[in-house]
Computed example of a mutant assay.
Amino acid sequence: MNDTNMHDEADNADVSQVLLNRRRLLTLGGVATAAAGLTALGGWAGTATAAGKPVSAAEAAAACALSSESIEGPYYLDYLLLRRNVTEDRIGVPLNLNLRVIDAATCRPIRGAGIEIWYCDSLGVYSGYTDNGSGGGTPPPAPGPTATPSGDPSGPPPGGGGGGGGHQEPTDDLTFLRGLQITDRNGFASFLGIVPGWYAGRALHIHTKVHTEGTATPTGYVGGHTCHTGQFYFEETLATKLELIEPYVTNETARVTLDSDFLYDGTGSTGGLLSLRYDPRRVERGVKADITVSVDPTATNDGQNGGFPVPSASA
């Protein structure tokens, strides 16, 4: 299915060089020095500040509550690849993911934030972990003591940490379905990819981090801190349709429903549920997904502590 691949050579041809350049930046003088030097490039530099048009009254009423925090999970890699198209060679239903980041206190958009996504392919496989096969996504243990986080999104992936699901060491250098965009003056950023599949223990989801108070560069984002770690979810109606079409139909892992997912908190858009648009008769043509992420830009939420739904009193 050629139109499902949405491969963007301009976005992906220099991935290895981007990773190499970033490692060199961190080696030569550290993150702070690199950020200071890259500021002089102009056009790319800038910190996350509230600016641009305010959200509409309807959007504010629905979105100004803080978005739910979640665990980072075991498959995060801090590549921070600046690119809109994250598809690479993966096949699946085309996804146009449109995100908006706003300040929960003011309901105004946040300009210059780095919003990052990573997720599995149609068969439940994560880049960097292809040797693990389909996800390995069994529920992690309950949160436990973790090392003090650095709060630096450009640092190495954290190891251990029961609260974050326990980071796993990568098995390869692949980078599909990972990327970062910088929000514009109205808080918007968008990605092109495919709709994710599923793996053991989890419903369809996309991981996200929002980085603020750092600096955008020609290859990514340096400095600052992670103010939000969350996950985006897909409605059950779409998931049942995916089960019937290629390549999702070949995924033999039992799919967990959204209501049975152990991390989705059931709060709708606040909990990460995406607003979807697609032709129910021709899902293979593509899906458009939108959500507003409401954050505290001064907070640090790196996904290493908590992030599990709080049981209700009745439960």
Rank of each mutant, 00 (worst) to 15 (best):
Y126I: 04
C107F: 11
V93Q: 01
E88M: 12
P74L: 01
C64E: 13
R111A: 10
G92W: 03
D89T: 14
P149T: 04
P94A: 11
I110S: 06
I71K: 00
G133Q: 00
V101I: 13
A142T: 00
R108T: 07
S67N: 02
G137N: 13
V125T: 13
S154A: 15
T138F: 13
T106I: 08
I115A: 06
A63T: 09
T130R: 15
P149S: 02
R90F: 05
E72H: 06
R84L: 03
P139N: 09
S127C: 15
G144H: 03
C107Q: 14
C120L: 10
E69L: 06
I91H: 06
S134D: 11
I71R: 00
G73K: 00
R111Q: 14
G137A: 14
G137H: 09
G73T: 05
N98H: 13
E88H: 14
V125M: 08
P153G: 10
G136H: 13
P153C: 02
G114F: 00
A65T: 12
S68R: 12
C64G: 05
A65Y: 02
S67G: 09
I91K: 02
V86T: 12
A113R: 09
R83L: 08
D103R: 06
A63C: 13
I102G: 05
L81E: 09
A105I: 00
W118F: 15
L80K: 13
S150F: 03
I91Y: 05
W118H: 15
N98C: 11
L82Y: 08
S122R: 08
G135F: 07
P74G: 07
E88N: 08
T148W: 05
G135N: 11
G114M: 03
S68M: 04
L80A: 10
G133M: 02
T87F: 03
I102R: 07
A104D: 00
I102D: 08
V86D: 10
S154P: 07
R100V: 01
P153Q: 02
S122T: 00
I102V: 12
A104M: 02
L81V: 08
Y129C: 12
